[in-house]
Amino acid sequence: MQLVFATNNQNKLKEVQTLIPSHIKLLSLKDIGCLEDIPETKSTIEGNAIQKAEYIKTNYGYDCFADDTGLEVKALNGDPGVFSARYAGEQRNAEDNMNKLLNELSNKEDRDAQFKTVIALIINNKLQTFTGICNGEITKTEQGKKGFGYDPVFKPKGYNLTFAEMDLSLKNSIGHRGKAITKLVDFLNS
Score class of each variant (00 low, 15 high):
2 Q>E: 15
130 F>E: 00
168 L>S: 05
118 V>L: 04
63 D>L: 12
96 D>H: 14
12 K>I: 08
153 V>K: 02
189 N>T: 14
7 T>W: 05
61 G>I: 07
124 N>P: 03
76 L>E: 08
104 E>Y: 10
176 H>V: 05
37 D>F: 08
162 T>P: 01
52 K>G: 00
86 R>W: 08
114 Q>N: 14
181 I>G: 00
182 T>W: 04
32 I>L: 09
174 I>C: 10
124 N>W: 03
117 T>M: 04
128 Q>V: 07
134 C>D: 05
8 N>V: 02
12 K>F: 04
2 Q>K: 15
17 Q>A: 15
137 E>S: 15
23 H>A: 06
31 D>K: 05
185 V>T: 09
120 A>E: 11
119 I>K: 00
56 I>N: 03
6 A>S: 11
103 N>M: 07
168 L>I: 15
117 T>V: 05
138 I>G: 02
99 N>E: 13
24 I>L: 14
135 N>T: 11
62 Y>C: 04
103 N>H: 10
94 A>P: 08
42 K>S: 06
162 T>H: 07
90 E>I: 11
181 I>E: 00
188 L>N: 11
121 L>C: 10
158 G>T: 12
37 D>I: 09
73 V>N: 01
146 K>L: 13
86 R>I: 06
19 L>R: 13
182 T>H: 13
158 G>H: 12
118 V>A: 01
135 N>R: 14
98 M>W: 07
98 M>A: 10
133 I>L: 09
142 E>V: 14
129 T>R: 02
77 N>I: 03
64 C>K: 01
128 Q>T: 08
140 K>E: 14
174 I>A: 08
166 M>T: 06
137 E>V: 08
53 A>G: 12
180 A>R: 09
179 K>A: 07
107 N>G: 13
114 Q>V: 05
62 Y>R: 03
62 Y>K: 10
8 N>A: 14
50 I>D: 00
67 D>S: 08
164 A>F: 02
73 V>A: 04
181 I>N: 00
82 V>L: 01
96 D>A: 15
136 G>N: 03
110 D>C: 13
64 C>P: 01
168 L>R: 07
3 L>S: 04
97 N>W: 08
162 T>E: 04
107 N>E: 15
164 A>P: 01
123 I>P: 07
48 N>Q: 05
129 T>E: 05
136 G>H: 04
32 I>W: 02
167 D>Q: 11
80 P>S: 04
45 I>R: 00
7 T>D: 10
137 E>Q: 15
146 K>G: 04
81 G>L: 05
44 T>Q: 07
44 T>F: 06
110 D>P: 09
117 T>I: 03
88 A>R: 01
90 E>T: 09
94 A>D: 15
